[in-house]
């Protein structure tokens, strides 16, 4: 980082109460407080949010696309985790 280059922050916005924060994009800021304020100005100027998180991009650990198969494929053959897997006799309600 040169003296003037500010670090990158990822911005997450909760669009309304009851919903999760969703990734909105990124921005540059010298520190967390300014990142939060820049995020407010940039990502919620049309009332898109009620709450904001900012996270230094360097602090996020992500799964790699190379690990996609070992990470996510094992979940694909467990249909019994989903309600549609089960047969319910006709006429049975509230189940």
């Amino acid at each position: 980082m040169t003296t003037s280059e500010w670090p990158l922050w990822e911005v997450f916005v909760r669009s309304r109460r009851g919903l999760s924060h969703t990734h909105a994009g990124s921005l540059h800021a010298p520190d967390a407080e300014m990142a939060l304020r820049n995020a407010r100005d940039l990502y919620t100027r049309r009332s898109e949010g009620v709450s904001i998180w900012v996270v230094p991009s360097s602090a996020i650990t992500a799964s790699s696309p190379d690990e996609r198969d070992p990470f996510f494929e094992p979940a694909a053959d467990k249909p019994y985790r989903h309600p549609t897997f089960y047969e319910v006799p006709e006429g049975v309600q509230h189940l």
């Binding site: 540059h28 820049n38 100027r45």
Partner: peptide, 11 residues
């Protein structure tokens, strides 16, 4: 001085 501040000052 920085693009983020364009948005802030305009607000």
């Amino acid at each position: 001085p920085v693009l983020e501040e364009e948005v802030a000052l305009a607000n």
